[in-house]
Nucleic acid binder design. Structure first.
Lengths: 105, 105
DNA sequence: CCCATAGTTCGAATATTATCGAACTTAAGT
DNA sequence: ACTTAAGTTCGATAATATTCGAACTATGGG
């Protein structure tokens, strides 16, 4: 859920989730793909999910996903492990994530 | 569904709906509110849904909602009647609209 | 025919965003 | 210590979006 091991990144508490911002975050093809992959993989490093895109570009997208509360990033050694904050998103927006991610393509 | 009476506006066929574009359209507070109101009212003119905003601003938002397939606009006399293309959206993205619009706020 | 109404379209100003190279940071490994 | 690996942050650029006034269009009424 939400504990201090998630530092040093700021992950917003569930109470600060905003529907419009979440929809915006998912409206970018690159970010939607990241979220889809995380949903199936469970977790992944940033590098595993770049499609040949530069690190700075990926870092930008991951930050947005973190800022809206979709993704949780924790430092494990030198890599950053990302996972979906599925339970948190579900608790704030029941059914939303499933409805979006179950859409084909 | 989709017949010629919808002219002169171009409404995309269901096959051209794109998930990301739909999410983007709904990520704007003004547009999400329009869609919410249409969902409860059934239909409404553009003027009924401006919140004191200029017509040109509203026209811009309605055009985006039409372009992504969310809204159907037909001319009735001098007013433009808008309604949600709920069945069309549902057929392409089952459960999506409901999942989004059922979220409070 | 003139006029008001309801929206659209155009154009411009402002603001946000996406992308990516370059420099920086932190943690391992040798 | 030095080096590599993995990301982040910064800065610039280019593309998109939002907002809104002004001019335009089309419809209906008197």
């Amino acid at each position: 859920m939400y504990d201090l091991s998630m530092r040093p990144f700021k992950h917003p508490p569930v109470s600060e989730f905003v529907l419009e911002r979440l929809l915006y975050a998912l409206s970018d093809p690159v970010r939607l793909e990241i979220v889809r992959r995380l949903a199936t993989l469970g977790e992944a490093s940033c590098g595993e999910l770049d499609g040949g895109r530069p690190k700075s570009t990926m870092s930008h997208h991951f930050r947005i996903l973190r800022d809206v509360g979709l993704v949780n990033t924790q430092t494990v050694g030198t890599t950053h492990m990302n996972s979906l904050r599925k339970d948190d998103v579900d608790s704030r927006f029941p059914g939303l994530l499933e409805a979006i991610l179950s859409q084909p393509e």
